[in-house]
């Protein structure tokens, strides 16, 4: 499978993982993740519930560190640097690799302060007004909120909140933006707006998204990893990557039967 991947994914890689196994305590949650995430592209993780898509995504910016029982073996390389090496500062990792969550989670502060939060943490010395405007424009939210920057970030619509969260992630100028089912809580129109936005963003950023929506993966992504799950005799469910390829191949000519069945909607 690996050799096959390397042929089909011939670009600069931002992430490269080697035999990553992810555990919660003794429980093996995801096994043998071997994956290259190409630069300036959108990589989608699809698969049934509980297959570990989000778990893997959260490993890319060490957000799983917040869970005490979590640990992994194998390597996750970010531009060749092992993210889990002891000398790596997780806080610095998260500054370069941003995250957008399933539920829009703006801070209970003004729209302006939501955007300015990250830059202030980093000690940004430039023109904050300009940065806020630029980030909101980049997040396709400026026209909606330019007259109410003092309004609470929690008082705008769900779709706007999610774009605010994207703009907030952009404001710290990361290289990668991870999105964990960014449209799961949104209506179809807001979803389309976010998808359009993702297409614009991939010129400057590398995006990795988890989605339950297969149309979204086929419409919006360049590469797709299909995660599957298998249970052991104790009933513990371990996720793994069934197939990873260009999105067209996954949806039009999958090599595995399970992928074929999943993308055609026969299970999951």
């Amino acid at each position: 499978m690996t050799s096959n991947l390397q042929q089909s994914v011939q670009t600069d890689n931002v992430f490269h993982t080697e035999n990553v196994n992810i555990y919660y305590g003794d429980f093996l949650a995801v096994k043998e993740v071997n994956l290259d995430v190409p630069k300036n592209a959108i990589t989608a993780f699809i698969g049934p519930s509980g297959c570990g898509k989000s778990t893997v995504l959260r490993c890319f910016n060490r957000l799983n560190d917040l869970i005490k029982s979590f640990h992994l073996d194998g390597k996750i390389l970010y531009h060749g640097q092992d993210l889990y090496a002891p000398e790596i500062d997780a806080v610095e990792v998260r500054r370069q690799i941003g995250m957008v969550f399933q539920q829009p989670n703006p801070f209970p502060k003004s729209i302006y302060d939501n955007i300015a939060f990250g830059p202030r943490l980093l000690g940004y010395k430039g023109d904050m007004d300009e940065l806020v405007e630029r980030s909101l424009k980049r997040g396709a939210l400026w026209e909606d909120v330019k007259d109410k920057l003092k309004a609470m970030g929690t008082d705008i619509s769900g779709g706007q909140q999610q774009r605010l969260c994207i703009a907030r992630a952009i404001a710290v100028q990361p290289e990668v933006i991870l999105m964990d089912e960014p449209c799961a809580a949104l209506d179809p129109i807001s979803t389309l707006k976010i998808e359009d936005l993702m297409q614009e963003l991939k010129e400057d950023y590398t995006l990795v998204i988890v989605t339950h929506n297969m149309q979204q993966a086929s419409r919006a992504s360049d590469y797709t990893a299909f995660f599957n799950v298998q249970a052991n005799e104790k009933g513990q469910r371990t996720g793994f990557i069934e197939e990873y390829d260009r999105t067209e191949s996954i949806f039009q000519s999958p090599k595995k039967k399970a992928t074929q069945e999943y993308v055609s909607g026969r299970f999951g």
């Binding site: 957000l63 998260r94 941003g98 995250m99 502060k109 943490l121």
Partner: peptide
């Protein structure tokens, strides 16, 4: 305080004391 605020802050590269001081405590 909802844990998604905690994640939002940590996800933006805030250290734990910055998260507590600037997000959790005000909320």
């Amino acid at each position: 305080v909802p844990s998604n605020l905690r994640q939002a802050s940590v996800g933006l590269g805030a250290s734990s004391y910055q998260t507590v001081l600037k997000v959790i405590l005000p909320a």
